[in-house]
Design a protein around this nucleic acid. Structure first.
Lengths: 111, 111
DNA sequence: AGACTGTCTTGACGTCTGTCGAAACAGACA
DNA sequence: TGTCTGTTTCGACAGACGTCAAGACAGTCT
């Protein structure tokens, strides 16, 4: 399912099918906790981060963090992998880049 | 309130205050109808578009479209202005650009 | 094997969201 | 001034969402 990846929001109307695919990703980012989780995962130096490093960063219970992580996972924004005792999360740059491209205000279009 | 505007998600963790400001904007974009509305507004040739052109593009009642437009307005993504009989909506590129910057996957960082 | 730790799933609860119909408001035209 | 069209607000309803406590599952260590 390859939604049109490149044109910016400001260039042409987003087709309904693309909107249906992309909107859930924006929605997943639409919670302050998930936005921070996403950035913690995406900015992890080793490319991945342990849930055990994520959970204590918030005043929320483990299950709640787990729930948010699942939302991010289902939106296609992150990937999870269990390795021994801990579960590691990694960002999926592709979709992130697609969202960014969509939002990018035409770089050279005020000409 | 000027949230840190430039660093990407992938560069450093989004601070809680920034997340609190930015997440509502993502949330506003997190509905297929609003995403399409946003793109129709942002891609309007004259820079603005009449509600009367927006409403018939969806299988939804006027009040529902109005509700979504209000959400976009309250998120700071669009501006409305009444001129005579019709109301015109215009995009606010600043916030859009901020969101794009946040999402942009480090352009030259695979070096 | 048994106990322990870390993570996820389930079930529940109150709140928010998307939608509509009906009504209110703003401006134009006769 | 009165009526008509376009837009928003109000009230209501079903469904989704964020959160937690309790329980289930996975893996490790003794």
């Amino acid at each position: 399912m390859d939604v049109s990846c490149c044109p910016s929001l400001t260039e042409q109307r987003v087709p309904a099918e693309a909107a249906a695919v992309l909107a859930p990703a924006f929605k997943a980012l639409g919670d302050p906790v998930r936005l921070q989780l996403m950035s913690m995962i995406a900015s992890a130096e080793s490319g991945e981060i342990c849930v055990c490093d994520l959970t204590p960063a918030f005043d929320l219970t483990g299950p709640t963090i787990s729930h948010h992580l699942r939302t991010l996972r289902e939106a296609g924004l992150v990937d999870a992998e269990r390795r021994g005792t801990w579960v590691y999360y990694r960002a999926r740059p592709a979709l992130l880049g697609q969202l960014a491209a969509l939002l990018t205000v035409a770089p050279e279009v005020n000409a």
